[in-house]
Nucleic acid binder design. Sequence first.
DNA 1: GATCTATGTAGAT
DNA 2: TCTACCTAGATCG
Length: 269
Amino acid sequence: MPEGHTLHRLAGSQQRDFAGGAVEVSSPQGRFAAEAELLDGHVFREAWAYGKHLFHDYGPVGTVHIHLGLYGSFTAHGKPVTDPVGKVRMRLVGESCWTDLRGPIRCELVTTAEAAEIVAGLGPDPLRDDADPDRAWNRITRSRTALASLLLDQTVLAGVGNVYRAEVLFRHGVPPLLPGNAVEPETWRALWADLVGLMGEGVRSGRIDTVRAEHAPEATGRAPRRDRHGGEVYVYRRAGAPCLVCATPVEHRRLANRHLYWCPRCQAG
DNA sequence: GATCTATGTAGAT
DNA sequence: TCTACCTAGATCG
């Protein structure tokens, strides 16, 4: 379940579980076997995330660069270690914990410099203290592309995925197809600030919850609706269902091969 | 058991 | 704009 909050959450838990100790690294599936052999037994220095990218720093031995893609996932366990189930690309075994990685779009050993290059190609990440929202704004305000597309462009903004994009646009009443160069600076400031808050909450909870207290099931009496992604949302994957605010059916279309959801009334602009 | 879907990205057309 | 791809779980029959 990979938007930026997932990767930052993983970096945090893996830092707690493995940092500072030697780890056993293996690739039961075999597709990371040569790299795992190089890393096996070395000290896991640090886990860190930038956008949807996760990095395991092994110092001079190298850095593992992981991108989960659409369906990559980690499972975390306490010892004892059990036999691999399914296609385990990478297994890490530490002092008391172990974790399995399955289905990543990327799992590769890179140098520190290469890791830095990957990060240099990404836009600011709302989950990082060092993020500069003006870098994203400079791209957005010069572009005729729909804001909904710009929000998913990782070179503009790093870490935002399909759920956060739909939800943050809804929360600010912004039409998703509004061209970047038609976005008001104060709108951008509000969107950024909201992403910082929402995604930070996502890191803490492990879910994407975007519904404000006044529209929450407890306040309105409607049945809670947890999406498969685990959280309570306004429009994501609610095509045809009544908008939680105005009851207008939620719209849906494909945009650049991704599902886009919005309320045509609340986000009329 | 077969088929479909998914919070993503890269590369071809 | 389209297609391929990494994998598992949900859904269909």
